[in-house]
Each structure stands twice: as C-alpha cells, then as structure tokens.
Design a protein around this nucleic acid. Sequence first.
DNA 1: CGTAAAATTGATCTGTCTCAACGTGGGTGG
DNA 2: CCACCCACGTTGAGACAGATCAATTTTACG
Lengths: 241, 241
Amino acid sequence: MTSITARLVRRLEHFAPLSAHERHALDDAAGTVRRFESRDDLAKQGDPVQGIFGIIDGFACRYKILPDGRRQTLAFLLPGDLCDPRTFLLSRMDHSVAALGPVEASVFAREAIQQLSMLPNLAHAMAWSALVQHSISREWLLNVGHRSSFERISHLFCEVYARLDAVGLASDQSCDVPLTQTEIADALAISPVHVNRTLMELRHTGLVSFHGKRLVIHEMAALRRAAGFNPTYLHLRRDQP
Amino acid sequence: MTSITARLVRRLEHFAPLSAHERHALDDAAGTVRRFESRDDLAKQGDPVQGIFGIIDGFACRYKILPDGRRQTLAFLLPGDLCDPRTFLLSRMDHSVAALGPVEASVFAREAIQQLSMLPNLAHAMAWSALVQHSISREWLLNVGHRSSFERISHLFCEVYARLDAVGLASDQSCDVPLTQTEIADALAISPVHVNRTLMELRHTGLVSFHGKRLVIHEMAALRRAAGFNPTYLHLRRDQP
DNA sequence: CGTAAAATTGATCTGTCTCAACGTGGGTGG
DNA sequence: CCACCCACGTTGAGACAGATCAATTTTACG
C-alpha cells in the first residue's frame, strides 16, 4: 500500500480507471486517517453530517436501533468502501455508523468533497459507488424478506467474499471476516442462537467453514446456488485486476 | 396542475425552492408523458438503463423475483418521485420497475439529465431525492427485519400517508392508496393471508381503516406510536407548503 | 490464570406460513 | 340489463421455521 487511499482507488476503479492526477487529488483530499476501536460510533443518528468516511481497513456498519433494543444492521462498510459524498445535502444522519472491530477510516471534509467533485471521472466513480451501495441495500431487503436463514447466511458470505475479493483482500476461496455471530445475526435479522445452528449446518454440508474470523468457502459454485447469489447487483468489473 | 412536472417540483422543493428558470428547465427536459397500465414493466432487470422516470400519477414499484416465484417489492414510487438521475452510470438494471395500477410517468433521456445537472440547485435537489430514497430503503430493511406484521403494516401506512401528504395528495387524515393486499404483502414480506388478518386487527383497534383503495387514519398519533414511526428518515421539510 | 465475551447446546413456545375453501364486487359480453 | 366470471378479499385448521429462555463450554486476552 503506497498511499493512504490505495484501497479506495482500487474499489473506485471497478467503475473506471483513475488518472494519476485523480488519484493524487483523492489522496490530498483525504484528511488524516482516523482510527476507531470496536463499537465506536463513527457517526450517530440525529447528528449533523460531519464528514464522509472512506474505509481503509476493518469492517464498519450502518445500523438503527428500535426502542425495545433490537438492532438492525443496514449495511456493512468494507475496506475500500466510500460513503456517499452527497450525504452533506442531508442536515442530519438518519442512522448510525459503528466500527465492528478496529477500523481505519479517512474522513473527507465538505470542501474536500467539493474539490473532488470537480473532476468528472472521479465524481462519476463516487456516484457509481453510492449507486452500488443502494443496490446492495435492495438485495439485503430481498435477503431478509424472502430467504431462509440458511440462504441468508450463504448469501452474506458470497457477498462479503466477492466484495473483499474486489479489493484484493481474498484469495484461495478464503478471507478474514471479523464478525461475531451476533453481528451476523443483527445484519440478517436472525437470532444469534439460530445463526449458530445454521452455521453448523453450513459446516456439515461442507460448503463453508467460518471459525476464528476466517471464512473458507469450500464449494463456491454450490454455495452460490444454495444462496441464490447472483453477483450482478454488485456491479463489479468483470475483468478483475 | 399547470405543468407536467408540477408534482415533481413540489416534491423536489422539500429540499429547496426552485427558481422559475429551474422549473422551466425541468419541464423542457421531461419527454412525453408515458402512460402504463397495471403490471406493465417500466424497466426490466438486466436491461440497459433507458431513461429516468418521474412519477406523475399512480403508484409504481421496484421489485425482484426469486427463482421460486417469490416476489419482493423493494420500494414504492409515488407521485412526485424522481428516480436517481445517476442511474445512467450503471450499465444494466439490477431490478425491475412495474406499474401498480395505471401510471403516468415522464421519462428523462440521458441528455436531458445532463442538461438539468448543470443547474446546481436542481442537481442538488435531485441528489437529495436519491438520498431520501436510499434512506427509505434502509427503513424498509428495519421494518422487514425487526417489526411484527402489525407494526409493519402500520409503518407502511404512516409512510405512504406522509409521502402523499408531502405532494398534496392527502387530506383529512385520508388518502387514496391503490394497492391490493397482495401488493402490500410483497412489500412487507408477509403472506397475503396474514396481511388480511392483520388489516382486520388494525380495523378492530380503530386506528386505521383501508377499504376500496381508501386509507383513513383515525388516530395518527396512536398509529405512529404502534408502528414506531419517526418521519425524520423521509427528510421532508418541516414547514409543509 | 482469571475473567468476560463469544460460541454452543437443549427444551419449549409462537408468529406467521401454507393449504384449502368460500364470499364478494365490479366489469363485460350476451 | 342481467348473468357470469375473475380477481380480490375473507376465514379456518394445521404445520413449521425460527424465537426465546436457560445453561454450559470454549475462546480471547489483559
């Protein structure tokens, strides 16, 4: 990793290659890299929008909490993910963002975003990134709405693997997924107990194992079939670099 | 309604007032108004993006279908709603859009969108609109993931009322909601049979009635409480015109 | 090593689904 | 103008995926 924003660049280049000038602009615009510890809130529901996060390392999530304490994870933010730069148009956050484990994120200020938006290709890449995140939200709705717990977990694993692979963080059908079973449960709207049982079932089928934050996919094709996973909603480039 | 886009303008002005020039530009950019009949697809998953829809009248929806035939409605498109103009950045639709009953929609071509995007205030209003739609997707995820069927339906009614009210299509705590029980079921990931039972329950509590496409909310405060509805995620102006 | 968080397992309960019928209202062709 | 028809709505009975409650074991880490 030569530059701070290398991971963001790699992600954005799934839309289109960035020129050296654009890459440098991105690097200049990125403020200091901030480090967050597990469970830190990067942003809180109801707060004014302070900055746009670009995830350098670690997993974060968007979430909301119901009055009775039930929590729904709305999205995972993975290394390379850049939040929607237009979020500054909203006066307040309608949800919170938290770190799941240690996270390094660069924070783009309003003025920095304005500068970057003047570069058409980069602006398009950031817009594309936001569109993809919306597409993922829709797929999650389908996932939670109409798939069984077995399919849901399989689908999540397929997605996370594909997204990590897209930024070079997966190889050999395996990758680090620093999520607890409870965190998976919050994302998929399944009880933690049931996540546990379903994970065992997945292991017994031999499709996947997930132990000690390490995800290993033993049979990708079969897993995708079981999950009903079709990666087109991720809008990644077909020719992976 | 003096102009074709009056409803879109009204919706966008929840972000900021539009100048006469901006309103005219929007009107000029809007192609012919197209009319769709119930169940027509305005756009199909897998197709190239042909145009950006602005809903003039009627309800439409985004949806996906699972191989086994189960259908998830991902969003409702209500009068005044404008699809994300940046969708042109995606090569193909990752979901379909269909009319729920007769729909009138204006279709903006790529060049028209480019023209409109040169007007900063209008471009911001359109971006804001897209952000709100993403916010609604997130709230739906919370709804489907963690609320009971009673809460879900209550929540949907609160949302639809608020959104219709925002464009002047509600009054006296009532509005036209041209949805069948099956369509509500597809949106909330509940079986049609259970939607029916839950609607009766809602009627018996006296909070809401929903007969013949007419929604009447008898006790707004109590309904919102029962639904856990907090309208901030809609990012509407506080002072309704 | 001690301690707290995370994972695992068992037993029981329940909201919602599924299947299967029947009622009803509005549109249409004879 | 009426009778048929079809989509939509309604109702009942039984089944089940997943929730909940309650321990117990394992792991991570200071």
